[in-house]
């Protein structure tokens, strides 16, 4: 934790400086958090809602931040949990017989107007929606964000070995999906 971050946390916890420090926090992390959430829930509108929820949670709870991790790790952990909770709610509240989150994600992808990938990128995204929850998150963080396993381990609170295994299985499944799709 560097000096700037310590100062930022101290200001976030001080009632007189909280608002200014919060603006800095939002500006610093909003893009990285946005893309992290977007890769989990796919759709822009859902991502926007979740990102706001994440920052509102931070605003309400920053006084209780224990500083045993960096702000970045703490924020990413909240964002991951909020995104997964959102998907669970979608599954519970769905009026259709939607048993798999992957169906919701595939629908979101199809209807997302803020997608400008080519056909092969769309197939890759569809393959990612077929992955189990944990593998999907690990794949996105490693493949697209190129995050280090150590950092992922702190955010997801999972051992490095388990993360490596998850990424390995995710790649295998995506390859199989793309091969099958190619044969069609």
């Amino acid at each position: 934790m560097d000096l700037n971050e310590k100062e930022l946390i101290a200001n976030l916890k001080s009632s007189g400086k909280k608002e200014g420090a919060f603006q800095v926090l939002v500006k610093t992390y909003q893009e990285r958090l946005y893309w992290h959430i977007r890769k989990i829930v796919m759709n822009h509108d859902d991502t926007d809602d979740i990102l706001q929820n994440v920052y509102i949670k931070v605003w309400k709870n920053v006084e209780g931040f224990r500083e045993d991790s960096t702000l970045f790790t703490w924020l990413f952990r909240i964002a991951t949990n909020e995104s997964l909770s959102f998907l669970q709610k979608q599954r519970r509240h769905s009026v259709f017989s939607m048993n798999e989150i992957s169906e919701y994600l595939a629908d979101s992808l199809e209807s997302d107007v803020y997608f400008d990938g080519d056909e092969i990128q769309k197939k890759l995204q569809l393959a990612i929606t077929k992955l189990p929850e944990k593998q999907r998150i690990v794949f996105n963080m490693k493949y697209f964000d190129e995050m280090k396993y150590e950092q992922m381990s702190q955010i997801l609170q999972t051992s490095v070995g388990a993360l490596k295994a998850s990424f390995h299985f995710a790649v295998k499944k995506i390859e199989e999906f793309l091969e099958e799709d190619h044969k069609k």
């Binding site: 603006q23 939002v26 500006k27 909003q30 893009e31 946005y34 893309w35 977007r38 890769k39 796919m42 822009h44 926007d48 990102l51 997302d112 803020y114 997608f115 400008d116 990938g117 080519d118 092969i120 990128q121 769309k122 890759l124 995204q125 493949y143 697209f144 790649v171 995506i174 390859e175 793309l178």
Partner: peptide
């Protein structure tokens, strides 16, 4: 995954991050 483009194919509405705060 070989020749697949690693760039993320999503984008955001114009001025989204500028107005988010």
């Amino acid at each position: 995954l070989g020749k697949l483009n690693k760039e993320h194919p999503f984008y955001v509405p114009e001025n989204y991050f500028e107005t988010f705060a």
